[in-house]
Simulated assay, not measured.
Amino acid sequence: MSGSVKKAAITGHPVTHSRSPLVHGYWLKKHGIAGEYGRVDVPPETAEDFYRNFADAGLSGANVTVPNKEVAAAACDWLDDAAKSMGAANTIWLDDSGRLCGANTDGLGFLGNLDQLAPGWDVSRESAVVLGAGGAARAVVWALLSRKFTRVHIVNRTFKKAKAIADMFGSGTIAHEWDNLGTVLEEADLLVNTTSLGMAGKAPLEIDLSPLPKTAIVTDAVYAPLETDLLRSAKARGNQTVDGLGMLLHQAVPAFERWFGVRPEVDDTLRNLILADLGVTA
């Protein structure tokens, strides 16, 4: 990437298969913006130095993916509330004074996806069940609390990790052992899988959905395959389902606006472009 145009990139390790360049490239072309978006592989052993000296990278900003989100946040001079809450940044940029600023838009991506594909999903919703206790779980818990869910149940096979998230966010978040899943499903208005279970090449997510009310919405952070076994099973029993692709697309919106000055839309053309890259027909 060269020249005087604004440049951004996906950073992390590995980044070879990231679809972020497709997403941002589509928006750059659609809006006729003279900008570039590429990939910069940043292994963990060099990550601290890279983000501390981000101004030397020749980039206006960047996305940050695993395993570097926490390191990037620590290197920032300013963080938004979401990044502060999660201790992780997925979007960084240099402001006019040269400060490195960071945000976490993963939670906004989660909300944007549901707002678009299940309008009104958060009306009169009280109880959510979140499966998993990694970075995606933290983002989803933050998002649900921002929409005033009164109870967010975090269920994970390693209880200590679920407890750490509950302690992080405090009131309204409750950690559970995996064996308690059936009980918490009984009152769920929303079920969210943030684990990698069910992803192509991973073990399946095997849970009994029979306690889940038919009125509950089920969504999955996994987007390859687009319809996971969880979503297929939920749909078969009459639950409304939302796939995880939109979370990837919507988290990119505020980042693009920050770097290039235009707020893009997640439209059908973009969604179909990514589905084609995944080898899935719309």
Rank of each mutant, 00 (worst) to 15 (best):
M1T: 11
S2A: 13
G3P: 09
V5I: 12
K7I: 10
I10A: 03
I10S: 01
I10F: 01
G12K: 05
V15D: 03
S18Y: 03
R19M: 15
S20P: 05
L22P: 05
L22C: 08
G25I: 13
W27S: 11
V42Y: 03
P43N: 14
P43T: 14
L59M: 09
N63K: 06
V64Q: 00
V71K: 13
A75F: 09
A75R: 04
D77V: 00
L79D: 00
A82M: 05
K84W: 08
M86W: 00
G87I: 03
T91R: 02
W93Y: 14
W93M: 11
R99F: 12
L100C: 12
G112N: 10
L114I: 10
D115M: 01
D115K: 03
Q116V: 05
Q116P: 05
A118P: 00
G134S: 10
A137T: 00
R138G: 03
R151P: 05
V152K: 01
I154N: 00
R157L: 01
T173G: 10
W178F: 12
V184S: 07
T195M: 12
G198W: 07
G198Q: 03
M199V: 12
M199N: 04
E206H: 06
E206S: 12
I207F: 08
I207Q: 00
L209N: 02
T215C: 07
V218Y: 07
T219L: 06
Y223M: 04
L226G: 01
L231T: 03
L231M: 10
S233I: 01
A234V: 06
K235F: 05
G238Q: 07
M247V: 07
P254Q: 06
R258I: 11
F260H: 15
R263G: 06
D268M: 12
D277G: 04
G279Q: 10
